[in-house]
Each structure stands twice: as C-alpha cells, then as structure tokens.
Write a protein that binds this DNA or RNA. Structure first.
Length: 577
RNA sequence: CGGGGCGUAGCGUAGUGGCUAGCGCGCCUGCUUUGGGAGCAGGAGACCGGGAGUUCGAAUCUCCCCGCCCCGACCA
C-alpha cells in the first residue's frame, strides 16, 4: 500500500516552465518524473511504478510469444560497431567515451551488433533456428535536439528484439509473430494506434511497419484513410493515378514562348493566363528539380503545384546513397541548364538522368522551361518529347490525395511512434559473419528481423492520449494503483474506517494508494487524486456520518454513494469487472 | 548547425544602474479550519547560471563561456 503521508511525492500547482506538451507538464506536475538534464529524466515512485507496469506488460507479451529475454551492457566496446561501420556511420548521435587506458567505448544506441554476436557465439546450426531474443535496456542517443519531455530523450528505455531465421519464409513468420505480439501489447497498454507501412530505407531490409499512437503533439506525420483504414508513412505513400490511354501523337507540337520575369510558378501561371487565356493552373506546369545524386546530376519531375519531398525521394530512389539539391557551382558545371528555365526535353543532350513522380505519367502534356533564359515551352508531352529513366515517388504528400487502396481522400495525421518492426535481412549477419550450416552442410547467412518498442516513451504516449483538463488518467493496467482512497476531514472515526477499507482492499489483491495525510484539506486531496489519475477514487469523508462513502470514476467523473456496509464488496465487483 | 527566446529559493515569477532582491505556491512552528488547491501569526530557504570587464555602485550595461526551451535541419 502506498501512503501519501510518507510517499516521495510533491505535486506542483504550476506547469514547469520548460515543458510544452501535456505529457511532460503533467508527469512533472503529478510528481512522476523530474528533469536532470536535457532529455534525461529521473523517475519518482509513482512514475517508476507506472513505468514498471508498462515494462512488465511488454515483457509478459514477449515471453508469451516464446521470445527469450537477455540483457546486454549499455556500455560497449567500439570493436563490434566498427565491424558494421556504425562507429563512423552513427556520427555525433553516438555517445562515446574512453576508459582510463584510452580505449574507445560507447553507450549503446541500439544493439544489433550485440544480438548478432550473441547468436554467432552460441549457435551454428539451422536446427537452432528460428529464435527470437529480446532485451529491455536503457539506450543512449545524443540527439541533436531532445524534445517533448519523455517522448524524445537522450536516455530512454527500449525493448528491442531480433529474430534469426535460415530463410525468408522463416523471417516472414517471425515477423508476423512479433506483429501479433505487439498488437496484444499495445492493446493491453490502452493505447490507440495505427499500424503504418513504412520504408525500411537504407537499412537494407524489405518489409517494415510502424506502430503509431495518434496524438496532436506527435512528431511523426503519416497518411491515414478514414474510409478503408489504410495508413502509411509519408515516405511509403503510393500515388494513385488514372490510367489514361492517350495517343501522344495527337497533341499539338511543342511551342516555345517568351516568359520574362517568371521566377515562380505563380508568376508563370499569371503569364500563361494573360498570354493564352484559358484557365491555366500550377498543376499544368512541370517543375524540374535538379539534384546531385551520388555525384551525378539528376532531374526530378513533379507537377508545378507540388514540392519535392526530399526524404520521400531518397527513401524511394533505389541504389542511391547521397542526394542533395543543385547549387550554383553545379549550374556552372552544366552550362546547358538555365536556372529557373529547365525542361526535360533536352535531358539526353545534357547527360541528365530523368526521374518523374507518377503523376507525370506517359501521355501527359506540360508547360515547362525551354532551357533558354526567359523562355518556356508548352505542349511538352511525356513519351513524345521526353522519356524518363524511372518513376519515383517524389512529390510531397498532401491531405486530400487519393488513397491507393480505395481512392478516398486521405488525411495527414500526427502521431508518436511507439513501435517499429522490420525485416532487417542479412546486413548485420553478413557484416559480422553470422552463418549456420544448413541441411546440406552448407554455410548460410542468417536473416534477421528487428523489432522495437519505446518503453519509457510509452509512458508519455499513454499520458498524451488519456489525459484530460484535470490531469493524468491512466488505463487500469498501467496505473500506479487500482484505487485511490481519500480520507477527508479530521474525525478519527473517518480515518480508522479509511484505514480498515485500505487494508481490506489490499487483502483482496487490489493496489491501493491511500491518501492518509492528516493536514491536507479535502480540496488538495481531490485535486491531487485527479492529477495523479488513478482510475477509481474512493472518498471516505463527510458521508460517513450518514453511513455512506463516495465512489468515483476518474475518467467519466461519475460519482456514486455506497453504503459503508456494502462498499467493499461492491468495489470488489467493479474492480473485477 | 541556422533562427528565436530564456536562466533570480524546491516550483512559478517581479525587479532595465542606487538602500537589506520582492511576491505566489511549497516547506518549518503555533493557533484556527476540514467536501474542491483554507485563514492568521511567526520562520527557514538565493554566491541573481559561470567568468572577465565598465562603474563610486551591477541581478540590471559589455564581452566570453555554460545550461535550458521552441521552430527548422537531423533522427528510431
């Protein structure tokens, strides 16, 4: 039983000045956490109980799925991370330190290397596979900008697991097992979430999904279709296009025209409408975004009303490591390209590789730059006047774009990423030479899956999704107690009755937070109870003289009087239901 | 790393060159009070982020450093 009279807890009346988001403000105000440095927090008793409840749910579901828990050090030597080149690749986000002998160490940002080496050290046969192992561990990342309190810290707790399989079919099965286990876990945590297809990007994997907990203060944006439930990371959104069968030869031929002083798409559209009449729009023009991809000039074609989303482009451009926008020096090296007047029709001549957003489909006709200063050209037809090397999802995604599944307009929603599962493949196994012998005695590189849950982040995500204007409002399983018993008044009869209730509830197996403070006023106790957010509140106070106590539901605000004689059994029934 | 803002007691804050740095919450003592963050009285608690400088005099002005928050870049 937790007694408020001696609990290490001081609730705050005012929001802390450095907090912006609700979870941060409330977790500090309710005495769950305290900031130690930017992105680094201590957990106080109520916070730590809540955190551990979450950790235990995660652990129980992992164990239930048959995964085995291990534990690595947080402090690690450099060598394994050098083999996978992450000592360099991770850059300044890696916390690095030296021991007294000047050897390099790091604080683990993630543990792929260690998991891989653990399996390599113990197992060497296909008969040992499949296996999934996990740990719940403090991770360190020297984020450029920690923010939003507990949501993005430099020290945080993550459950990470890895599956090891001999082949792709096995990996798929392990992946699905994790997926199912995550669904159970997040359901128990009382989180609302969407499973969103994601790009596995440069990690070299194939399939990847994120578990996103929608909330306004989330820092991830994703695409959601309210009609069919389709959800995707912006990078993984697929453009839906009408499949027109257009005969390109039927278009009028290209026509160059003067277009001075049209540095922007808007000014070009104005000129078009003045010159040619009609109702020209930004979407009739073709934007040629010049980039340098692995040292070579490329052009990405998008409709004039869209920006290129570089992250999306990079995620979808296969086989390209590094990408950056054209700079003045690049224009100098490519004299044919006139800044502001680039068009795709001369790309071959310029040695420019063309990529196009799917909207720039074959058979579409565009107004674009004429590759001459102050001149544009119209009736530039894809398939007649230019060809592209590859279509690539490059344009920014907007609310109202059509769902690739059901063609309804999608919305752009915000969320906190609480879990991520993906098929890593053989990248780490190859780098660290994790092989097993197969049935034929041949050496095979193991294929891996990687699965994460932000455990400490989940505390904040739940707070974000469940709080109200009065305070925190924990789902039953994660709450620091089942019932918050408040004794008000100074009558010793009331306190001894409350004491008796507290003991009875505890002996029935319920976790009780007992506000037995003798000096706090009823108002203070009620406010604290609402701020702390335990799901049920039992008030033993002025009603006692009439033989009653008051039972409250934190979330709904519902109150009802119970007869003292029946209170415990009624509450027991409610808590059991 | 670019832009903006902040740093005064445990928390929230006032104080733009002049007396002993003020207030609210919280804390301690006493009395009163006990169903919505009680009242009165007394009290403890601050190297005003650090350093250097300007000045008769610096929380206040100048420079450097450190820390923190927000937007962006970046990122699981």
């Amino acid at each position: 039983m937790l007694r408020m009279s001696n609990l290490l807890l001081r609730t705050l009346r005012d929001d802390p000045a450095d907090a912006e988001v609700a979870s941060h403000k409330l977790l500090v105000r309710a005495g769950f956490v305290r900031r130690i440095a930017a992105g680094i927090y201590s957990w106080l008793p109520l916070g730590y109980i809540t955190y551990r409840n979450i950790e235990n749910i995660v652990r129980e579901e992992m164990d239930a799925a048959g995964f085995q828990e291990v534990h690595f050090p947080a402090l690690l030597p450099k060598e394994p991370y050098e083999k996978t080149n992450r000592w360099n690749e991770y850059g300044p986000d890696l916390f690095r330190l030296k021991d007294r002998k000047e050897n390099d160490f790091l604080l683990g940002p993630t543990h792929e290397e260690m998991f891989t080496l653990m399996i390599k050290g113990e197992f060497s046969s296909y008969k040992d596979l499949p296996i999934s192992i996990y740990q719940i561990q403090t991770k360190y990342r020297d984020e450029p900008r920690p923010r939003s309190g507990i949501i993005r810290g430099r020290e945080f707790v993550m459950k990470d697991s890895y599956s090891f399989d001999i082949d792709d079919a096995g990996l798929e099965e392990s992946y699905q097992k994790h997926r199912a286990s995550y669904i159970k876990t997040f359901d128990r945590l009382g989180l609302k979430y969407n499973i969103v297809s994601a790009m596995s990007g440069a990690m070299g994997g194939s399939k990847s999904e994120e578990f996103l907990a929608p909330c306004e203060t989330g820092e991830d944006t994703y695409v959601l279709c309210n009609s069919c439930g389709f959800a995707a990371n912006v990078e993984a959104m697929k453009t839906r296009i009408e499949n027109k069968n257009i005969v390109v030869e039927n278009f009028p031929s290209m026509e160059i025209f003067d277009s001075p002083n049209t540095p922007t798409i808007d000014s070009l559209v104005d000129l078009l409408n003045n010159k040619f009449g009609g109702n020209h729009q930004a979407s009739d023009t073709l934007k040629n975004v010049l980039l340098v991809a692995d040292g070579k000039p490329i052009s990405v074609l998008v409709p004039g009303d869209r920006e290129v989303d570089l992250k999306r482009l990079q995620a979808n451009l296969s086989g390209i490591q590094d990408i950056r926008l054209f700079e003045d020096a690049d224009f100098a090296k490519n004299p044919g390209l006139v800044k502001g007047y680039v068009g795709p029709q001369d790309a071959k001549k310029f040695g420019l590789t063309l990529y196009a957003d799917p909207r720039v489909s074959v058979g579409t006709s565009w107004i674009t730059g004429a590759n001459q200063k102050d001149k544009h050209v119209r009736n530039v037809v894809h398939g007649r006047d230019f060809e592209v090397t590859e279509f690539v999802e490059a344009a920014e995604v907007k609310a109202g774009d059509l769902c690739p599944n059901c063609a309804s307009p999608v919305i752009i929603d915000r969320a906190i990423e609480i879990g991520h599962i993906f098929q890593l493949g053989r990248k780490y196994a190859k780098a660290l030479d994790l092989t097993v012998l197969d049935r034929d005695g041949k050496s095979q590189v193991v294929t891996m899956g990687s699965y994460g849950i932000g455990v400490s982040r989940a505390v904040a995500a739940i707070a974000e999704q469940t709080h109200d204007e009065l305070g925190l409002c924990w789902p039953r399983e994660v709450a620091p107690a089942d019932i918050h018993l408040v004794a008000t008044g100074k009558d010793s009869e009331i306190f001894s009755l409350a004491e008796k209730f507290a003991k009875e509830l505890e002996s029935l197996g319920w976790r009780v937070l007992f506000d037995d403070r003798a000096d706090a006023s009823p108002g203070v106790k009620f406010k604290d109870a609402e701020l702390i957010g335990i799901p049920y509140i039992l008030v033993v106070g002025k009603g006692v003289s009439e033989g009653k106590v008051e039972f409250r539901i934190r979330k709904s605000g519902e109150k009802k009087d119970l007869q003292i004689t029946e209170a415990i059994s009624e509450i027991n029934t409610i808590l059991n239901s």
